[in-house]
């Protein structure tokens, strides 16, 4: 569990904003920002996670919270406290479907979610390196016995999660704006989605994201937009109570 994950999203959005101000083409700035954050993720693992003398769960949680604070503070110093508007990916502003008008970026978000979910699914289920990563997270000891360099696998997983976070950040930025403090809420939303869907379950994560997203919109529509986040978090807490393994999760995530 990495509490800096939300900051990767923030960095992705921020870098996307920054590269666009330098008049770098949109596709290139998208690739650049995801690659840079991926590398940042890799270095965070190499320097901090690996360098920790006492890798207990508590220390690792606190460590990633500290890293999140540093990323957030640095971003505030570099890019300021304001929310920055980011240009949408497609050359037209909005589309109209069934009389409803959307920002064209929603198409990109939707397509991006499907593409990357499929890629992840293929990676974890069909490729050797993906299977090894799954196994290392489930049972690091057994993998070590089989001669797998678990540390290296972890480093790669930090690279991938940095990259994915940044991809999400730069895709969402034209809708949500880029702001230095968006990370923790983004991270919490992501966590809520995976709790609702079931941890370590890609299909569940997507379903959880949809459930959270739809109920937020309903709350915004029927109650008030200031309560939409509350609804998302309440759903998560409710799921923790009723079925802690998530709606689509396998049981047995409890400690023995």
């Amino acid at each position: 569990m990495n509490f800096a994950q939300g900051e990767f999203v923030m960095l992705g959005a921020m870098l996307q904003f920054y590269f666009l101000t330098l008049h770098i083409p949109i596709v290139l700035s998208f690739l650049l920002s995801s690659l840079i954050v991926g590398v940042i993720g890799y270095f965070i693992h190499a320097v901090f996670i690996r360098g920790t003398r006492n890798p207990q769960e508590l220390a690792l949680i606190v460590l990633t919270i500290g890293i999140a604070m540093i990323l957030r503070g640095t971003s505030m110093l570099l890019f300021g406290k304001n929310a920055h508007a980011v240009k949408q990916f497609l050359p037209f502003d909005s589309i109209t479907v069934f009389g409803l008008t959307f920002s064209s970026q929603y198409i990109v978000v939707f397509a991006g979610a499907i593409i990357f979910a499929t890629l992840l699914f293929i990676y974890f289920n069909k490729t050797n390196s993906g299977k090894v990563m799954m196994a290392s997270s489930n049972n690091p000891l057994a993998c070590r016995l089989f001669g797998i360099d678990v540390e290296q696998v972890q480093a790669i997983s930090f690279f991938i999660s940095g990259m994915l976070g940044a991809i999400g950040g730069s895709i969402i930025a034209p809708i949500s704006f880029a702001k230095y403090n968006m990370g923790l809420i983004m991270g919490l939303k992501g966590f809520s989605a995976s709790v609702v869907g079931g941890f370590g379950n890609n299909v569940g994560a997507i379903a959880g994201g949809l459930i959270i997203g739809v109920s937020e919109s309903l709350a915004a529509g029927y109650i008030s937009s200031s309560y939409k986040d509350i609804v998302a978090f309440l759903i998560m807490i409710l799921v923790l109570f009723v079925k802690p393994s998530g709606i689509f999760g396998a049981k047995d995530i409890e400690r023995v």
């Binding site: 919490l188 008030s224 309560y227 986040d229 509350i230 978090f233 807490i237 923790l240 802690p244």
Partner: peptide
């Protein structure tokens, strides 16, 4: 809050309390 989350691994309580903190913060604002 603690009853369900403290049966689970460490980061669940951290995240659930983060959510509670945000909920209370938003209620105070709204």
């Amino acid at each position: 809050i603690g009853y369900p989350t403290l049966k689970l691994k460490g980061h669940y309580l951290a995240m659930a309390t983060l959510a509670i903190g945000e909920i209370i913060y938003m209620l105070a604002n709204n």
